[in-house]
């Protein structure tokens, strides 16, 4: 297998105290990499850095051996796509939401919206097809988060950066999402997933570890308060 994404000594600061954190790891093609580290250790921040939505202090990321600054920010994010934990819903119907990315030059330049594929993905994630003409703002939290995942998969990125994708889901929906996450990187060559989820550790996925550089500072243990929605997701195991 080939290296898809290489995270090379990325350092960044988190919180108001400016604690410095180091992350290193390699995502293989077809693989899933789990970001390991306790709550509050900067896992979400790391995903945002990988998507270039904020800058690191130091370090580089390579996509198939090419440094990230060889890409325009637009090209990079279209290829290495970050999906936030809190689903973003645009005004309009579910269909309008799924089509929204296809109004962007970076997406339309190489891909057309495929309605059959949209319906098929919705089905895989247990979203009934009649939702398609419903106002997306009226969806439940769990439906919204799956809609956001469908929308993301439809634009066919190479690397998916998923932040707690099952946190808001009931067990049935969560297992459908997990199945999709497990199958998606292998469906076509050149794909991979970087995941932030407690499920990753349980599934013994390879780690992209986040280390606290201030050795004297001991990272706080995982607290429920940090991840209120996580309780529901716990039901999956």
């Amino acid at each position: 297998m080939d290296k898809l994404l290489e995270v090379n000594n990325i350092t960044f600061s988190i919180g108001t105290g400016g604690r410095r954190v180091l992350a290193t790891g390699v995502l293989q093609e077809g693989g899933i990499l789990n970001v390991c580290g306790p709550s509050g250790s900067g896992k979400t921040t790391l995903l945002r850095i990988l998507a270039r939505l904020r800058g690191p202090d130091e370090g580089q990321v390579f996509l198939r051996g090419k440094g990230w600054h060889d890409f325009t920010p637009s090209r990079w994010r279209r290829t290495v796509h970050y999906l936030a934990q809190k689903p973003v819903i645009f005004d309009g119907t579910v269909l309008a939401n799924l089509k929204r990315p296809f109004e962007l030059a970076a997406v339309t330049s190489d891909l057309k919206f495929n309605p059959e594929k949209a319906l098929e993905l919705m089905k895989r994630l247990l979203l009934p097809p009649e939702l398609i003409n419903q106002d997306a703002r009226t969806l439940s939290g769990g439906e919204s988060s799956r809609l956001a995942l469908v929308r993301t998969i439809l634009v066919e990125p190479d690397v998916l950066l998923l932040d707690e994708p099952i946190a808001a889901l009931d067990p049935r929906a969560a297992s459908a999402v997990l199945r999709l996450i497990a199958e998606w990187p292998r469906e076509v060559g050149g794909r991979g997933v970087v995941l932030v989820s407690h499920i990753g550790e349980l599934a013994k996925l390879p780690c992209l570890s986040v280390l606290d550089l201030e050795a004297t500072e001991v990272l706080e243990p995982e607290t429920k308060k940090d991840n209120p929605a996580g309780k529901e997701g716990d039901g999956v195991e």
């Binding site: 920010p73 637009s74 936030a84 109004e103 970076a106 956001a148």
Partner: peptide, 16 residues
């Protein structure tokens, strides 16, 4: 901000 960032994550330019 969430919407803007989601669009950026799809490869939108700042203007888009």
């Amino acid at each position: 901000a969430g919407e803007i960032e989601a669009l950026l994550a799809f490869g939108a330019t700042p203007w888009e």
